[in-house]
Design a binder for these strands. Structure first.
Lengths: 139, 139
DNA sequence: GTTGTTGCAAAGAATTTGCAGTCTA
DNA sequence: TAGACTGCAAATTCTTTGCAACAAC
């Protein structure tokens, strides 16, 4: 579980890293590594999937992108401020949501003696598009 | 994404299913399939890991147990009422937590046009044991 | 010139699946 | 006795890693 941080070696700015980062910034659909790989290839045809994985991990570690795990698969987003996600069970779409009162809830959890470092809320159901398609939401 | 439900065939009550279910009920540490397999083998030495996976999926589908995914790995619990989880980044322990105001937050999310079916809150950080061990919590 | 980074392919880890035999209802 | 379930092993899927060549600084 524990991850020891050496952090001694200095990172280099490679073309691959720049391109992958830009792809994530430009994507608003929470793409997977595979999707990012496809998009990055348009700019850098020789980039490899392994490199995409490595770069994504670096970027997330540096706090420049965020990783969201849905169905045991990593997705990434360029938005790094505090927010949460809604996942449509029908079409798989991931959408950002803001939640009120998170700080209050978090304080309640800390009262049990935990030190809370990260919070992750996920809401699953039907996005409005799919809800309408299924006739569940009318208006 | 979409999962079609046939649900025509009638389920049978096998010894394997009963044993796996009992193991989950008796475990309060949110075990993985592998752990459940090890525990079930004490009762049923010939049970296979594949069967454990199949039975766990069935039980979860029937709503008799709950699946929690942490680090892209499935864990299971016998407690099926509404609650959430705290995950210790240091020791990996998963603990149940209750959160207040969930209904209020959920209503806020639904105001955006989503139909919310499941809610999942995860809090990551240090459990009280590890926080004390690291000298972060004193009292 | 160092040494971090890449592309490639092979390895890993967790889970699922095909199949022939077995057991439940 | 029909067909659901099992054990086994092979297959899948997503991700990580070892290594020699490459490219930042």
């Amino acid at each position: 579980m524990e991850k020891l941080e050496t952090g001694k070696r200095k990172k280099r700015n490679t073309r691959q890293k720049a391109v992958v980062y830009q792809v994530v910034l430009d994507s608003h659909d929470h793409p997977t590594a595979e999707k990012i790989y496809e998009r990055a290839k348009k700019e850098l045809p020789n980039i490899s999937l392994g490199t995409v994985y490595r770069v994504l991990k670096d970027l997330a570690q540096e706090g420049r992108i965020k990783e969201i795990i849905v169905n045991k698969q990593s997705h990434f987003e360029g938005r790094t401020d505090f927010h949460h996600h809604f996942i449509c069970k029908s079409c798989g779409r991931i959408e950002d949501v803001e939640t009120p009162l998170c700080r209050y809830t978090c304080r309640k959890v800390e009262q049990k003696g935990y030190v809370v470092e990260d919070i992750e809320y996920k809401f699953y159901g039907l996005c409005s598009k799919c809800a309408h398609k299924k006739g569940i939401l009318k208006e």
